[in-house]
Each structure stands twice: as C-alpha cells, then as structure tokens.
Design a protein around this nucleic acid. Structure first.
Length: 474
DNA sequence: ATGTTC
C-alpha cells in the first residue's frame, strides 16, 4: 500500500522509503488518482523511484494509470554521469507514439456541407487496423534504413510534405543518434510495410474545430481561432517499435545482474545509459522514433490529399508534432547544477517553456504547443509549456485510461456508442466494433479535469479546446 | 500499444 501525502490540491508526495532513492510526486486532484483496488500505478511510481541514478523525484501526470513497469503518465530522469539507467519500460512499447495537429484554412460552417465527403475521402486514404497496409510502399530494407535514420526529414526529402512542416516537428523531424543497425531483423520485417498507417487501440485521426480559446495571445501565435477546422493524428511506430521494446527488455534482463542492478519488478529492466546495452537501446529507440515521426508525416500528407479532394483546400499547416513516449538526453538544473539527464517520458508530453532554444523561432516567445487528445468524441486540448516547467518540462498526454480494455469491452455496446457519436454530430469511419467499445469515453478519465489539474499544477497552461466532428479509427 | 500467446 503506497501512502500519499497531500502537498497541495494538485500535488501529492510518496515519501522515499526502503529502496526508494527519491520521493514520488503525483500531480493530480483526489478524483484523478488511480483506484488502488484496480490500478497499481501508485506502486509503480514508488518502484521507479528505486532506479539507479534517478534524480529529484519519480513523477506522474494527472492522466496516470497502470502500465508496463512504469506508469503511463510517468516521468523519470536519471543522471547519466552517475550510473543513471535507461529503461525500455520507461518509454513503452509504442516508441515515439505521439500526436500531430494540422490547421486547415476552413471554418467549421464552411466545412459542414462537405463533411461527409471529407470523411469518405479520409476513409479511403487512411490505412488503419492491425497490420493492414500503409500509404508508403518502401523500396526495401535499404529505404527503410533511410526512414530509420531520417524520420520525417527523409519523408519530406522524398516529396511527402513541405520543408516548413519540419520546423514544427519536435527535433525538426528526426532524433539524432539513430542507428538503424541497432534494430533487429524481425523489427525491420515488421516495419517494412507499415509507414503511413494508423494502427488500432487508442490511435485515431480526428477532424475537429476550435471551440474555445482560453489564452488569446498564445492562441493567436498558434493560429487557433474559433471555428478553425483542424486535424489531429495520433499514432506511433507500429510493430517495429513494439519489437524494438520487446528485444531490448530481453537484452537488459540478461545483463542487469552484471551491473549490480536489482529492481522490484522485472518489467523495470534497465541498464546504465553509458553501458553497451544502454547505448544499443537508445540507438534503436531513436531509429524507431524516427519511424514514428515518418509515420505521422505520411498520414498528415494523406489528410492533405483528402481535404484537397473533398473541399478543394488541401492547405493544412502543421501546428506541431510531439511524442509522448520517449527517453531523451537533456540538460536540466538539479540541486543548482546543470546535469546531463536521461529523461523518460511515458504517456507524458515534453512541454518546453517560453524562450527555450529548441523551439522554432516563431513559437519561442510563447512556449511549446502541448497536444492533449481527449477520449473518443469528447474533444482535445492545446496547452502551452510554462516558464516554471516542472517535472523536467513535462505535461499530461491525454485523458488517461480509468477502465481496462477488457472492462470497457464488457460494459459497452459498440453499436450504441456509434449511434451516440453520430447523434452528437461526430461522423465515424472505419472503426471495428471492438475498437469502438474499448475506446468508449467512460473508460477514460474526464479530460477537462485532467487538463485543469495540469493547468493549476503549473505543468502547462490552457490555450484552446477542440471539438470533434469526425473520427477515423482502426 | 502489439502479426492481442515464439
């Protein structure tokens, strides 16, 4: 049983006990905390706090819930120069899973008469579901290596997008230090035919419109005006990323004892960042991340074609593309000293503060767009990084699951859910009955409450809300 | 999340 101490209404502490090296810190209201009888995420926050080299605290965001090893919504940083570890479970199976928000030139009232045509066009060009085709037919393993090394940059080089897109991608579209050779044969095979595909589970493409603006100045800098139609794409690195995680966990389990590391849960398998195994993981992870970046770039292009075809206006501009499953080497001040850290964000979004040098120039004054998809049909939020940038500049990544997929499936009728969505004015395309039922909104926390907790805890500030008008799902 | 149990 993990004991929580309430520090503020939006911040709870788990004191460091036993093998914990740092405390746990959970950003949430009481209502958003996981139910301990059904969800072990708080114990996972404490378990992560035992990892070698961890600094400051084992953090969790308001959308936290149970995950593989680390909680989803977990943030943990380790000191690279003090034997800090990297753990594949701190990134998750869907490496560089993330979101991309594109802005159209249309107002919702202009789109309405063409909405069905647009949804049909998207239906035709967006591959989705388990291993069922992709937009991009790579020439073979040699070209897959280019994708793994170059990410969205390579996609744009090959004509899949505009150079301006890259300015609005985290890491300008490609993570450095990616080594395609660090990726195994099986992962490569799985990856060959999936670049430009949505996948299943909680992945989706949504057509939305700006429904509320909370911060005029930042919304203006982001180009978010009321009624503006936009497209939100949520997907990751598909089977390739999954296989990289599987292979890496196995490799680390085999060497942990050699490094004198013991962890309370074997799902926390890890190795020192500077070890051969740590470096191999980070190289493979970066390559898988680039695959995810290329994947979102290709789907954004497919959305442009569908808009062009259905509305005559394919001019979607990219607001931002950001991952919420990644480990990054970053410099942060800890106890007054700049330190090189390996920051794991799993179901947590990077939220760079105003003025940060990694931001594109035209967004630097206001801070990074933080994209927070809500549950299906409920709407999404755009937030912005704050000057205080707690938890190594991180924020929530979504609503956060409340019920397991199995529980959701048992408690929901897919047909009724589809009817409810259509009745609420949300067109649905391509969703399997099971996919719909597992993603029922009542299986998720209230995204309004999650975002409010983020805002009041100072993790990220509210900028605008987006209301859905159409969804494409696996 | 995932060729949902190599």
């Amino acid at each position: 049983m993990t004991r929580l101490v309430e520090e503020t209404p939006y911040r709870w502490r788990i004191d460091a006990e036993g093998p914990m090296r740092v405390p746990g810190v959970v950003f949430a209201t009481a209502d958003l905390l996981p139910d301990p009888s059904a969800d072990q995420a708080l114990g996972q926050v404490a378990a992560v706090a035992t990892l070698p080299g961890i600094v400051e605290a084992s953090y969790a965001m308001p959308d936290m819930h149970w995950g593989y090893g680390f909680p989803i919504g977990g943030v943990a940083a380790t000191d690279v120069e003090r034997d800090g570890v990297v753990s594949p479970g701190g990134v998750g199976f869907d490496i560089s899973c993330g979101v991309r928000l594109l802005l159209s030139g249309l107002r919702l009232d202009e789109l309405r008469p063409r909405l069905d045509a647009l949804m049909d066009a998207l239906d035709a060009v967006i591959p989705r579901g388990m291993s069922k085709g992709a937009v991009w037919h790579l020439r073979g393993q040699a070209e897959l290596e280019e994708v793994l090394a170059g990410g969205a940059r390579y996609a744009v080089e090959r004509g899949h997008g505009e150079p301006a897109d890259l300015e609005r991608c985290e890491d300008r579209g490609a993570v450095a230090d990616a080594d395609p050779a660090a990726i195994g044969a099986r992962a490569r095979e799985r990856g060959l035919a999936q670049v430009g595909s949505l996948g299943s589970g909680n992945h989706f493409l949504e057509v939305e419109a700006v429904s509320e603006v909370y911060d005029e100045e930042i919304a203006q800098a982001y180009g978010l005006w009321p009624g503006r139609v936009c497209v939100l794409i949520h997907t990751g690195s598909r089977g390739l990323g999954h296989q990289v995680c599987t292979d890496s966990v196995r490799a680390m389990e085999a060497v942990m004892a050699r490094y004198g590391i013991s962890v309370p849960d074997r799902q926390l398998a890890c190795a020192p960042v500077t070890s051969p195994e740590g470096q191999a993981y980070l190289s493979a992870m970066a390559a898988a991340a680039n695959y995810g970046r290329a994947n979102r770039q290709l789907l954004g292009q497919a959305a442009r074609r569908a808009f062009e075809q259905a509305t005559g206006d394919g001019g979607l501009s990219l607001l931002y593309d950001v991952s919420h499953n990644l480990a990054k080497l970053e410099t942060h001040h800890v106890e007054g000293r700049a330190r090189r850290l390996c920051v794991h964000r799993k179901g947590a979004t990077l939220a760079l503060p105003p003025g940060h040098e990694d931001l594109p120039e035209d967004l630097r004054a206001v801070g990074q767009p933080v994209l927070v998809p809500g549950s299906m049909g409920v709407g999404s939020y755009v937030l912005a990084g704050t000057p205080s940038a707690p938890a190594f500049a991180s924020a929530c990544h979504g609503a956060g699951r409340r019920l397991s997929r199995h529980q959701a499936l048992k408690s929901t009728s897919a047909a009724r859910l589809r009817a409810e969505l259509e009745e609420a004015g949300v067109a649905v395309r391509g969703a399997s009955a099971r996919g719909l039922a597992e993603e029922t909104p009542h299986a998720y926390k209230d995204v309004d409450a999650v975002v409010t907790a983020c805002h009041l805890a100072g993790l990220a500030r509210k900028v605008a809300k987006l209301a859905p008008v159409g969804v494409v799902k696996g």
